[in-house]
Simulated scan of single mutants.
Amino acid sequence: MEIEFTKYHGLGNDFILIDNRTDRKPMVTSEQAIQLCSRHFGIGADGVIFALPGQDGTDYSMRIFNSDGSEPEMCGNGIRCLAQFLSDLEGDNAKTQYRIHTLAGVIIPKLEGNGKVRVDMGIPLLMAAQIPTTLAAADEKAINTPLEVALQVWQVTCVSMGNPHAITFVEDVAAIPLETIGPLFEHHPVFPQRTNTEFIQVVRRDYLKMRVWERGAGITLACGTGACAAVVAGVLTGNCDRACTVELPGGCLEIEFSEVDQRVYMTGPAELVFTGNISLI
């Protein structure tokens, strides 16, 4: 089977986008997604994203397979890329704003016309059962909670942006041995559905540096939901302001945790890389 694809990236977090608008079932299996995402034997990407027909009154639906074949609930950089992909597909009929159904709920990205997309990421979930994590009682929050990983105690704050995040603030993100410690966080038994992990350095109250280990993808250059979760955690722990620039290895995102409506807003780029056709085995 031959499929058409388009590759986009958001701050180096790269995705293969597939026009799947005529069928609710992804045309690529999770096993084939692993093949496509291989950087040596395939196209190379952090994940495959499908533009599916809308449901429950939305314009479109979004599904994702990570590079390991797992399916996350949502992806912040990915949904910006999807919004740009949909706009490019629609051409002259393109909207400036879309309502997109995801496994994390309805997400609303808005194309700003300057190469950036602003996304209403919704209200963060904070109760331990919602993350999910056993670091706290089900109806309590895990904020600055001690967790032993690799013979070291880390102060961890847990946030769900529709997908699970464990955030810890450190003196120097560059000193974190991400390749070895990331998997230990991801697969720690206190996270029954595994977790994304963000290591955050506070440069100023309105400027954070972040490195991330993504559940199902490993080290990536950027994570949109992770940046959102980091600012939420920073506000909860008193480490940062509600509006922050978050610097990731691939570039910067602007994150606002609104005091008015308690929703999180993310603004960042979505850039076309190339288009092509590939035959799937």
Score class of each variant (00 low, 15 high):
110 K>Y: 00
133 T>C: 07
129 A>F: 09
120 D>G: 02
105 G>M: 05
139 D>Q: 15
155 Q>G: 09
106 V>F: 04
109 P>W: 00
120 D>F: 08
112 E>H: 00
103 L>S: 13
108 I>G: 01
118 R>Y: 07
172 D>E: 14
102 T>D: 00
97 Q>K: 13
152 Q>K: 15
161 M>F: 06
137 A>R: 15
131 I>E: 07
168 T>Q: 07
119 V>D: 06
111 L>T: 10
107 I>N: 03
151 L>K: 14
109 P>E: 08
154 W>V: 01
142 A>T: 07
138 A>I: 07
132 P>F: 03
98 Y>L: 11
139 D>V: 10
154 W>G: 01
123 I>G: 08
164 P>A: 09
142 A>Q: 04
150 A>K: 11
160 S>V: 05
107 I>G: 00
163 N>P: 04
142 A>P: 14
138 A>C: 01
139 D>K: 13
170 V>Q: 05
137 A>C: 00
115 G>V: 06
101 H>W: 15
158 C>I: 03
100 I>D: 05
104 A>D: 02
146 P>V: 03
145 T>F: 15
98 Y>C: 10
118 R>F: 12
152 Q>G: 03
149 V>S: 12
156 V>C: 04
160 S>C: 08
166 A>D: 11
172 D>W: 12
118 R>C: 15
111 L>P: 11
159 V>R: 06
163 N>I: 01
150 A>P: 07
115 G>M: 02
158 C>V: 01
148 E>S: 09
137 A>L: 10
104 A>Q: 03
125 L>T: 07
102 T>V: 11
151 L>Y: 13
113 G>E: 03
161 M>K: 06
127 M>V: 02
170 V>H: 04
150 A>V: 10
148 E>L: 00
117 V>A: 12
134 T>A: 11
114 N>A: 08
106 V>D: 05
120 D>P: 05
99 R>T: 13
126 L>G: 06
116 K>C: 14
105 G>I: 00
159 V>L: 12
161 M>R: 09
100 I>V: 12
123 I>D: 00
